[in-house]
Nucleic acid binder design. Structure first.
Lengths: 193, 193
DNA sequence: GGCATAATAAAACGTTCATTCGTTTATGTC
DNA sequence: GACATAAACGAATGAACGTTTTATTATGCC
């Protein structure tokens, strides 16, 4: 019979949000545990109830975001559609996620370009994206998509997208529906046979 | 009549290299001034002879790399070639630079995705890439390239390239001549009309 | 060779860091 | 409502931080 006070998951959520905000504003180097805790209205020591240490906080924040992104990608996933439509849906889903969550996207980019990324269990993260990868394999088999490594295909589909949707990298550029369809057209032209 | 001891520019060079190495290995957060100085075999205070502060060191390192990259890009620049060949030469020049200088490339990516990037005078950096941008404008005018913002074009040409040439992001994938020509073909398909 | 000067270094500065400690507070069960 | 428990906290920890101060070394010119 466990008698215990329950953890307040709002605090974990607040710590995630504080981490994302601070790391985007002042970077990994200046984002101290005490600043993050203060931003989340939590005591520094309380942070250690939810995370083993600072590193664990940063890595967990990344995995949390990446999982959200995977769910967004697979939300409208429909295996029965033509391959181009499946990929188009996925592309738009990711674009929408990145547009609606610019802070999460910026954190993701900053994190994955830093040495912290080596601490992530990649198998766990990539597992979420398998269905989408399978579609590309199917597209190759059906001679619809160029016969190239999946990671090359993914690079052409998603890398420009992240740049375009990221205000830090493309501040001057605001996307509208026309530009968006153009951009997907370019991504598709790159990978289609 | 100036009587003075000359600065040892080798030390500035060593500090650049130490910064790149350490930031890639342990990130901005852990790369302290004293560690960088030790890696460069220099006293911490000597660092301040060459740079105003840590921030200046990090930004200067980035600008130095970006300038090197621009020179690599423009080295084989030949205005008289067909547009596709000009862009192909530039693409290969950048790929070669990134392949031969993976540490510099990784630093560049990590830096430009961090808040430090806001400290860079973008006009100074972008000026170096103007000739290449002009080629793309010419390509649009001649109806060879899609009529899209230059930053969208650049995103499709260079973003996948950085990912493919970066061992941190594509560890499992080794590029050979065939894959390379495939990859450029994809980039060109994306932007060509 | 000696002097002026800046490059260089070692040590010290106050501050902030990540983490832990000791205590208090809130909650689920009886 | 009282008890047991873990959540939550503020304060304290020593280490490391970026930078400055102070002292020494090496160099170019007379």
């Amino acid at each position: 019979m466990p008698i215990m006070r329950t953890k307040d998951e709002n605090k974990k959520e607040a710590l995630f949000r504080a981490t994302i905000k601070l790391v985007n504003e002042i970077g990994f180097a200046s984002s101290s545990v005490s600043k993050i805790a203060k931003e989340a209205n939590v005591s520094p020591s309380t942070l250690y109830v939810f995370f083993d240490n600072k590193e664990d906080l940063l890595v967990s924040t990344y995995v949390e975001i990446k999982t959200q992104l995977a769910h967004a990608l697979l939300e409208n996933f429909d295996d029965t559609l033509p391959i181009r439509d499946i990929i188009r849906n996925g592309w738009y889903s990711v674009f929408n996620y990145v547009s609606e969550h610019p802070d999460e996207a910026a954190y993701m980019e900053q994190f994955s370009n830093s040495p912290y990324s080596e601490l992530v269990d990649k198998a766990v993260v990539e597992r979420e994206f398998v269905p989408f990868g399978n579609v590309m394999v199917k597209g190759i088999e059906q001679k619809i998509i160029k016969d190239v490594d999946i990671s090359i295909l993914a690079a052409f589909i998603f890398n420009p997208l992240f740049r375009l949707a990221n205000p830090r990298l493309c501040a001057e550029l605001e996307m509208n529906e026309e530009k968006l369809e153009q951009a997907f057209g370019m991504a598709w032209d790159a990978i289609k046979l």
